[in-house]
Each structure stands twice: as C-alpha cells, then as structure tokens.
Amino acid sequence: MSAATFNVTLRVWRQAGPGQPGRFVEYAARGVNPDMSFLEMLDVVNDELTLRGEEPIAFAHDCREGICGTCSLTIDGKPHGPHGGVASCQTYMRSYKDGDTIVVEPFRARPFPVIKDLVTDRSAFDQIQQAGGFITARTGSAPDANANPIAKEVADLAMDAAQCIGCGACVAACKNSSAMLFVAAKVSHLGLLPQGQPERDRRVLAMVRTMDGLGFGGCTNQYECSAACPKLISHDFIARMNRDYAKAVFRAAFRPLPADAGGE
C-alpha cells in the first residue's frame, strides 16, 4: 500500500528518428510512488517535460497489463526490467529505492530499428508470421469442434507456446539477436495440434527461412531469451523446432512427390 514517495534518476535513450544518432539524457523522476507502474512513472516524467516545453519520451505501450506485447523497454540491461515473467508495463516502482539510477534503452537488434526514443519497429515478426504462422482453415469449412479430441496434455503444451505476446524481448535479450524463441513458440503451438499437421513441414521451413532472411541471428543455446520472456516461454520449444526443422528438411528432400498428373 502507498508508502512514502521517493526520487530516482533516469538515463533514457533519446533518438529523434530512424537512423539518426541517439544519446542518453538524464531526467529526475520525483515523487515516485512505489505502487506506480514503471510506465506510469514515465507518464509523470513526460507530463513534466511537456510542461517545460520539451518533447516527451516516446515509448511503446497499450494494454498496460502484460498481454498486448507493445511495451518494450530494456531497463538496466534487461529487457522488460528486473523481474522474470513480466512485461515492462508490469514492472512496479516498488522494485526501486530512493536515489537509484535507472538506465532505460530500447530493445536492440538490427531487425528492430529504432523509430524514436524507446520505440522500435518490430514488423519483422509480422513478416515471419505471414510466412507460415497459420493453419489454413477457410471460414465456414470447419468440422465440429469436438470431432477431434485432443489430449489435455497436448492442448496445454500448445497453449504454453501459444501464450507468446510477440514482444520481442527474446530477441532483445539474446546476444545473437536470435528470434528462435518467438518462432519456435509459434511453430510448436501449431505443430503440436492435429489441425496443424498438414502444413507442419512447410510452416517450419518457411518461417525459419524468413527469420534468417530478416537478419535475425542464430541460436547458441544460451537461454537468455526464455529468462527474459514475459510469458516464460520455455526454450524446450526451440529444441522442438530444431527437431521439426531437421525432419522437414530431410522429408522435403527425400519424400516421394505425388506423380504428376498425366504421368509416365
């Protein structure tokens, strides 16, 4: 409950636009209430900046409850801040104390260029999704939902993977800027379910190819991603995707092709 307020110093990355040089600027955040969220603290700082006639700090946010995946701050070197399993918007000021200096940077990775200040462009994730992150189910053609029972364990595991909020913290945390956790989560979610089988091989091949093409790095199995992930998506899914990928590569190369119509 509301305890005494305190002051912190922020060192915030300011950058006017894409490709422009950026730098750190210090701001004092005064009268911080421990029950404030980190973003609410930034709101207050921004209102003060506005009153002083300065441009407020641009930062991405929307739902403010850890589900939309918009917020994306690297706080003191850790994507989404000091705690595990939460997004930036779920970081509360009670994690800090009077006199702390907090360094706030954008999510960094070449495929996530900075748009302004702390806002980055993560559209690369959409492109990966468009490459194959779906099950083709034309509207109106679905069988009854209970026609194919799915074991609870399988459905639950698929749900574990499906929880990804597409925030990109995995990329930001990975020393290689690898998008493996994000891609693996989607590949596993769809690949675990019976509905996802027909497109399973093409999906993993296409998504991985797109991921590589967009300039994300490779995985060296360091598991920083799953530690930074606000949904604590397990790197087990990366192993699963590696296996799926290997199988798909060999099946694609050696599986017999359906005879061409009109054959001989």
């Binding site: 950026g22 360094v103 960094r108 800027s177």
Partner: peptide
C-alpha cells in the same frame, strides 16, 4: 544481427 548500437 545485434546491430551497430550496443546496449549501454
């Protein structure tokens, strides 16, 4: 992939 701007 990491990009030019390092984390501070």
């Amino acid at each position: 992939a990491r990009g030019d701007e390092p984390y501070a």
